[in-house]
Nucleic acid binder design. Sequence first.
DNA 1: TATTGTAAGTTTGTCGACAATACGATGATC
DNA 2: GATCATCGTATTGTCGACAAACTTACAATA
Lengths: 267, 267
Amino acid sequence: MSDRSSGLGGLTSARQVGRLAPVRRTSTVDLIADRLRDAVVDGSLPPGAALGEAELAFQLGVSRGPLREAMQRLTAEGLLVIPRRRGLAVRTMTPEDVRDIHWLRARIEPELARRILARPLAERKTVLAELGAEVKRMQRALKKHDARALGDAYLDFHRGLAAWGGSIRLARMMSTLLIETRLCTFSMYEHFEVAVDLVPEHAAFVEALAAEDAERFNALMCAHLDAEVRRLLAEPEATKEDDADRLLAETPDEPQPLDRLDLPEGI
Amino acid sequence: MSDRSSGLGGLTSARQVGRLAPVRRTSTVDLIADRLRDAVVDGSLPPGAALGEAELAFQLGVSRGPLREAMQRLTAEGLLVIPRRRGLAVRTMTPEDVRDIHWLRARIEPELARRILARPLAERKTVLAELGAEVKRMQRALKKHDARALGDAYLDFHRGLAAWGGSIRLARMMSTLLIETRLCTFSMYEHFEVAVDLVPEHAAFVEALAAEDAERFNALMCAHLDAEVRRLLAEPEATKEDDADRLLAETPDEPQPLDRLDLPEGI
DNA sequence: TATTGTAAGTTTGTCGACAATACGATGATC
DNA sequence: GATCATCGTATTGTCGACAAACTTACAATA
């Protein structure tokens, strides 16, 4: 991702010729997993819909073996659910999931600013440019009332944040969390509306970064995630407590409708 | 997990007879994955060792299909690495991984106290009892100089913390992080020694919880995780900066020794 | 002597097939 | 009329097999 040779100066430029980047060979399982993830993200596999293995394998042009392996991977990521003998289903997020995911994000994302600001100036500039571009994308999407594109830009903004502020592991985790966030918007669709506040909120993030004000970024991010939860759960700002209780109580946990089975394994 | 009928009073006690707990049917893949996880935790699959599928499948008494599916799941969890056409290997943690994992833990674990303290009194008592028992286990293990048992108790202590302070998702994530922590101790074994401080540190955690002092718990946990990183990386307390740089520089990222291949998929 | 080319062997990656199981529908009995 | 039992079907879970690919060792040549 980041340029490996930067920082070494021109000293090694003579040997640089032999320094070819390693070939990225990706396995079939990887490809299938990516394809499935994309399908989950763009909504072509809606939450709750149960799909047969044979059909899916045929569509993807592979046999059931590799498909099943990819399914297991997405299951471990929490995006898919594999009810016994019933194919696979995209996970449906519950109100509890929404809170959970955003709680985790609230632990991580605010801190990212500090780590980004600790980077050298040149990189910081790149980050600002990238994030700024994403905000512009969001703006354009909003103008066209394209909720899908807005969501995509949102995803990429936060993905970029994690990529620059964290490690590979962190980026991977954040990416999963973000996809889960999107699953939340799919699952809670009745409450979902194109959020006009989103663009100024994210513009403010970039501003805070530019001003090197980690504290403000922190506060902004917490506020944003808070607002996001309320938006998704359709909680009015004031009666937060009551609604939280109500929605939690609404969550039935006995009759499990096929895509709400709890997470797979005994951890 | 939590008692479902509580709050309804004794009204439903007559029907309670018919309320059997759902049968936990676990798939073969789950079983294999659990077995592999256990093997990683207890060190029978040491980091870096490459194992053949056929051999492993034979040992587990299953065919290669389900084994491969389980492997994919552990891969998604970051515990295994699947180099192309070379079987599977337990991941070797790098110094960067150590910092990374503990940074994540430091974002999450300190906050757990607040959530535990928000629970009703009865539950809090249970938590304290459970955690106290784990500390006792640690103490006994230390007395016997049994590093393995000490590590197990340590794992269960923090697992319990996550189980009581978080959601299912959080518990799952923490469990993975803890197993990765253990992999760190395996991977950095040359620097690893039985830590005598561990027991009083954890006793202090329980005390802080008993005193309902979330702030102190917070500080203690951060200090503990910090110390853990230093211990693993063998960084003396003072020259932290220098050593951090040195160790990071030591990490070669070009010639990848089979179990250090980066995380599998393009997230 | 070092390096490249070749060949054998081993292991994975993928596929097809079989069997077991769960579900749905239809019919029978109380 | 409703509930239960039985049968059929569709789909999964598992296994075995084949072919391709990678590695290692060995030999030949410069």
